[in-house]
Amino acid sequence: MRKSWLQGYILKRLLYAVIIAWGIVTITFILIRIGPNSPADKYLANIAARGQDVAQVTAAIESRYGLDKPIIVQYGDYLMHLAQGDLGWSFSTSMPVIDLIGKHWIYSFQLIFLSSLLAAIIGILLGMYSAVKQYSKIDYIISTFSFAGISIPNFWLGVMLILLFSVKLGWFKVFYDTTLPLLSLENLKALVLPVFTLGTGMVAGYVRYTRSAMLDNLRKAFVTTARAKGLPERTVIGKHVFRNAMLPLVTIIMFDLGSIVFGGAYLTEIIFGIPGLGQISFNAVFANDYPVVIAITLIGTFLALLVNLITDIAYTYFDPRIRYE
């Protein structure tokens, strides 16, 4: 009974995601076209600066990107290329954008994964504790810190950490070393400050979400029922309240990923020189390497979309109250 409507729902949701993805791609295409510079111009400026033959390269680019064709055909080509995973050519690094991303995504993933995991664990535990001890001194302290945490600009926090721990105390080396293996001790050490920088705001956010979701449910009648049954407080909170609080919580956490975490990671990578996608995009911006900038925006967007889709389906699966017919 459950399976059949769920399948239909997933199909509908997938179709819907494809439409949104198409919408996003179209918006970026329009943005590129209405930009003041044609994509080639930016690149040509670079070429000319290097003293190469502009006319020859122009022709090559125009045919490569089909800029001589009607706009509709260009749009079709653009969609076709994207659908085949062809994100274009990175001028500044002289390799296909997809390869560039293939080389660097792991650093972003590492940073975001570690920060999110730690932030979720710490944030949820503190939030639960704060809710259970509502109005206590510890609750006030946790709430105050979480307020500070969501208000502190994460890029400034990063700079301050560098100032304190690298410049003044010299404890942590600031820059990430790509020649060393990903999980080498040196690089893990270099991740401490970035993870702290990115994680602080996330912990603060999760504390607040968890606390309010827990409080919402703590006041509900079923909690009194659970206590009246003779369950120990541990079970009442951990099982009955938390299970109900968790569903909206997961949605919010996942939703944050695209809207807040990606932006935070972008800045953190730049500050600490982590060679992830944010750093790549940042470099590309200043090298006028527009295919890279666009590709990374698209990838971020698709990831956010995918995560939303998965969360939605998981939510539907796990919350017995929801039924889409």
Partner: peptide, 10 residues
């Protein structure tokens, strides 16, 4: 769904 900051940068 647009990651807000990436869009701004773009």
């Amino acid at each position: 769904t647009f990651p807000f900051f990436l869009l701004l940068v773009l």
